[in-house]
Computed example of a mutant assay.
Amino acid sequence: MHKIPVFLQQDRGFIYNVDDYLELRYTHRIVGCLIGVPVSKSRNVNISALPAVLSRYEMKLAIEKQIITVHNRTAELMQSPKEKNKSSYHNLIEKQASEQRAPYVEKRLSEFKKLLPQIIEGKRKKFLKAGSKDSDIHIDPATLIFEEKQKIETAAITRLIQIPMKHPILKEPSSTTLLLSAGEQVKYKVFKDIWEKQKMYITGGDTFGCDFLLYPGDPLYYHASHMVHVLKNSNLKTNLKYLIRCCRLSVVVNKVCVFAYENCQGTICYQTMEWEGNTFCIT
């Protein structure tokens, strides 16, 4: 099974390959967050804009399900590079320069060939002006092209320096344990339970003041249908004002309000609240 490489940076998982991200999104329903891409339901959104960042819950789930491999270079990047790594990096830079020079030479040579008749005529006029006889003037087009090619290949060019987002020298994946706090552990159990049982897309719910948003399909094409709030315990009456705020907000944004919690047996339970007149209906 192909495992998608994810690069751990500042405690977040980054994906830089478009195909890997699309596989993660459409095959495994792990959406992540595209950096610099606004939230939109438009079909014109450029989904290939990378990098993408996985939340801590998405990353932990993908590790457990053996969907991804984690590359953690934090410790190595804090140290001075070894000579072997320096050599490999310089080889990459030279390769990039060579790849940039090839199309540059081809373009300049193509332009030279288009102007070759005028160039030959200009040289002939110079020889005539210098006193040479027309019969003695012999200008070989192939020689001119060869000389121009040598000149272009040895000339200095303005190079584009690529700044890699991920480490350019890929190594074996690192064994990484993602530690979650007690509160995050409960939220992760809810996230995992929904992902395994409901077959819905799940994203963070910060924009709507909840823990998770549930989508019936890809969030690029569907609006969220449910707002999930993770509770510390099963007693919904502990904070009635909090429940009212959550439910009122869900009505305004036209979403179903769901409360999730872990019972004494360690099972994740759900309660849904909906408006019925002026009273709440708990289902």
Rank of each mutant, 00 (worst) to 15 (best):
I152A: 05
R101T: 12
K199L: 11
D134M: 10
L92S: 01
Q198T: 02
S87W: 05
R159E: 13
V186D: 01
E153N: 10
T158I: 03
M200N: 02
K114H: 06
K189Q: 08
S88P: 03
L116H: 09
Q118L: 13
A102T: 15
V186R: 12
A182N: 10
Y104K: 15
S88D: 09
F112P: 03
S88V: 05
P173T: 12
S175F: 13
K125H: 04
M200S: 04
T177S: 06
K114V: 01
P164T: 14
K187P: 07
F191C: 01
Y89E: 02
Q100G: 08
P141Y: 06
E172A: 14
T176N: 07
G131V: 07
A142G: 05
Q162I: 15
P168Y: 07
P117C: 08
L170T: 15
K189W: 05
R159Y: 10
K113Q: 02
D140F: 03
I139K: 04
V105P: 00
V186N: 06
S87K: 09
F112N: 00
Q118G: 05
V190N: 00
G183Q: 13
L109P: 15
L180K: 00
S132P: 08
K123M: 04
I161C: 13
P173R: 04
A97L: 09
V105N: 02
A130W: 03
T154A: 08
E147A: 09
L160C: 12
A130M: 06
T177K: 01
K125S: 07
I119V: 09
T158D: 15
K149T: 04
E121P: 03
K129E: 02
K123G: 04
I119Y: 05
I163L: 12
